[in-house]
């Protein structure tokens, strides 16, 4: 997994609450058996004026000029600024895959849906929870200043504005460590293999029916 340390990124403001993972990546693209290539279809139904399908070229599709991601001043953005409950709905990890493939590496919102929040960390994306009033202010600053960029420092747990104001955010220590170092969760878990085995042995005595298996 890609390491995350310091990101100096252009901000794109998506001024909607409850953005669900169906909106982030519509269902037809979930038919892919690959992990990459979802970026061009990020927010497909909002971003394009026609209907997208897997395998269809996106280059000549009509763009929705009103959608914020299509505005010239936000091209190349890597920080997504948004509202409450971002990533609600379906557990599809295709949502962070699409964001990452597009180039979004940090998301700032007053709150996130649990499964999406968790999925971000598995894909090198840092979701940052800031106070709703602070997010409101960042929206105003971003919309008023073309080229508005923020510096996200995971190690220091700060978001720094262009005026030098530093805003602190919380992140779970374990998740921070893994994201800073790009560590593979499975590798870390397998270090506990003895404990997993001991648990299974004990549990087989206590609750043998849990080990009778799905193979009849």
């Amino acid at each position: 997994m890609r390491k995350f340390s310091v990101l100096d990124g252009l901000v794109v403001p998506l001024d909607r609450a409850n953005v669900d993972t169906d909106a982030i990546i519509p269902k037809q693209f979930l038919k892919s058996i690959k992990r990459a290539g979802f970026g061009p279809n990020l927010f497909d139904e909002w971003r394009y004026l026609d209907h997208g399908e897997p395998g269809k070229s996106n280059h000549d599709r009509p763009l929705n000029p009103d959608f914020v991601l299509n505005q010239p001043r936000y091209q190349g953005a890597s920080v997504l600024l948004t509202r409450d409950n971002f990533g609600c709905g379906s557990s599809r990890e295709h949502a962070p895959w699409a964001l990452e493939d597009y180039g979004v590496l940090a998301i700032i919102a007053p709150s996130f849906a649990d499964i999406f929040y968790n999925n971000c960390f598995k894909n090198g994306i840092l979701p940052i929870v800031l106070d709703a009033a602070v997010v409101d202010r960042l929206f105003r600053e971003c919309e008023a200043n073309e080229g508005y960029a923020l510096t996200v420092d995971l190690d220091k747990q700060t978001v720094t504005t262009p005026t030098g104001e530093s805003i602190r955010f919380d992140v779970d220590a374990g998740r921070k460590h893994r994201l800073l170092n790009g560590l593979d969760d499975i590798g870390l878990t397998l270090l506990q293999a003895d404990k997993i085995k001991a648990y299974e042995e004990r549990r087989k005595q206590e609750a043998p029916w849990l080990f009778s298996g799905s193979q009849q």
Binding site: I115, T189, L190, I196
Partner: peptide, 11 residues
């Protein structure tokens, strides 16, 4: 998510 599907399969 899918990363955790893989994690459960493996561990």
């Amino acid at each position: 998510g899918t990363s955790e599907v893989e994690h459960v399969l493996a561990t």
